[in-house]
């Protein structure tokens, strides 16, 4: 028999059923060169199966669980805020519907508008349009900004 190849020796150590084990055993008994190669492979296999050095910190599993817990709490607090906001809006809506608070606030709003009228009129004149439309436009822009921020937060959570 010729010398054993690297493939033969690897198959032998892998216990590959395709290999004629008896023949390899016999050859290894009589051939110093192949036996040495085999021994080196055997050492290599032992080294590759060595588990030394694979160490994580002792509280690894606890840290992962604590990360999950924090994430959960964050999500809960977000939904809590959304629910609170909805509840708040709903309450205000009910209040406006069943009382005359809306009229009161509108009169306050109108009064304030009149107070800052000279300043806003200047801007309105520059824009050449109706002042009320200008104010509503600002309010709509702010509302869009808030909605956009909320959508961004939900998407990236």
């Amino acid at each position: 028999m010729n010398h054993l190849t690297d493939e033969d020796l690897q198959k032998y150590l892998d216990k590959d059923p395709e290999l004629n084990k008896t023949e390899v055993d016999r050859h290894l008994k009589n051939c110093d060169q192949c036996r040495q190669n085999y021994m080196v492979y055997k050492q290599l296999y032992a080294g590759l199966a060595d588990e030394t050095g694979f160490m994580l910190s002792a509280d690894f599993s606890e840290s992962v669980v604590s990360r999950i817990r924090k994430k959960r709490e964050k999500t809960y607090s977000f939904f809590e805020s959304v629910l609170l906001a909805i509840a708040g809006l709903f309450s205000v809506g009910i209040l406006f519907y069943f009382t005359n608070l809306g009229d009161v606030l509108l009169s306050v709003f109108k009064k304030n508008i009149q107070d800052i009228e000279p300043f806003l009129r200047g801007i309105g004149d520059v824009l050449g349009g109706n002042l009320t439309i200008f104010i509503f436009a600002i309010i709509i822009i702010i509302l869009f900004g808030v909605a956009d921020k909320l959508i961004f937060q939900i998407k990236h959570r």
Binding site: Q33, Q36, M39, V40, Q43, A46, T52
Partner: peptide
């Protein structure tokens, strides 16, 4: 290489020295 094979002694088959283990780690 062929002439060297079989000429130098290998350590005990089950033991792998610290030096060889470190070398294996680097090569791996």
């Amino acid at each position: 290489l062929d002439s060297l094979k079989g000429e130098f002694p290998l350590p005990d088959e089950s033991a792998i020295s610290q030096e060889v283990s470190e070398m294996l780690y680097v090569e791996l």
